[in-house]
Simulated scan of single mutants.
Amino acid sequence: MSNRFRIASLVYMMTNAVLFGIGIVAVLTIPALARNAMDWVPLTVAASFILAAPIAWVIAPRLRARYWRHRDGDVISGPSTATDNP
């Protein structure tokens, strides 16, 4: 089991919750969708389960420390080691 899969499985749960929240708020606040909420809520649940997996897979490598380094090895954030004075 790769590290990316492990991280993605943890991120999947959070991504699923966010997508479901966005979807259910949209269903309940848009009057045209709220009239048929019994049809839209199960669709929202299914869509959040399906869409969360690829989104979590894309997010997972970004959570690894190696991803945030420059190609030359310098860390993006932090104090600079270069000096301006010769």
Rank of each mutant, 00 (worst) to 15 (best):
M1A: 06
S2Y: 00
S2P: 10
S2W: 00
N3I: 12
R4K: 12
R4E: 12
F5Q: 05
R6A: 04
I7E: 04
S9M: 05
L10G: 13
L10K: 07
L10T: 04
L10N: 10
L10Q: 08
L10Y: 09
V11S: 06
V11E: 10
Y12T: 04
Y12W: 14
M13K: 01
M13I: 13
M13R: 02
M14F: 14
M14S: 06
T15L: 06
T15C: 05
V18A: 07
L19Q: 04
L19D: 02
L19Y: 02
F20C: 00
F20D: 00
G21R: 02
G21Y: 00
I22T: 02
I22G: 00
I22V: 11
G23A: 02
G23S: 05
G23V: 01
I24C: 03
V25D: 00
V25R: 01
A26D: 12
A26R: 07
V27C: 04
L28C: 05
T29D: 07
T29A: 09
T29V: 09
I30Y: 01
A32Y: 00
L33V: 03
A34S: 14
A34V: 01
R35Q: 10
R35S: 08
R35V: 06
R35M: 09
A37T: 07
A37S: 10
M38R: 09
M38G: 08
D39K: 03
D39M: 11
D39F: 09
W40L: 02
W40H: 05
L43D: 05
T44Y: 00
T44Q: 03
V45C: 01
A46V: 13
A46F: 09
A46N: 08
A47V: 14
A47G: 09
A47S: 11
F49V: 05
L51Q: 07
A52L: 12
A52E: 10
A52K: 13
A53M: 13
A53R: 08
P54M: 08
P54S: 02
P54K: 03
P54Y: 01
I55N: 07
I55P: 10
I55M: 15
A56T: 01
A56F: 10
A56G: 03
V58E: 11
V58N: 06
I59H: 06
I59E: 04
A60M: 10
P61M: 07
P61C: 09
R62G: 14
R62I: 13
L63G: 06
L63H: 06
R64D: 01
R64I: 08
R64P: 00
A65C: 00
A65K: 13
A65F: 12
A65L: 04
R66T: 07
R66E: 14
Y67R: 14
Y67D: 13
W68A: 03
R69G: 01
H70Y: 15
H70F: 15
H70W: 15
R71D: 13
D72I: 08
D72F: 13
D72Y: 13
D74N: 11
V75D: 12
V75C: 04
V75Y: 10
V75H: 08
I76F: 15
G78C: 11
G78Y: 15
G78E: 11
G78M: 11
G78R: 11
S80D: 15
T81V: 08
T81Q: 09
T81D: 05
T81A: 04
T81I: 06
A82Q: 09
A82K: 09
A82N: 03
T83L: 14
D84M: 15
N85Q: 14
N85R: 15
P86R: 04
P86T: 02
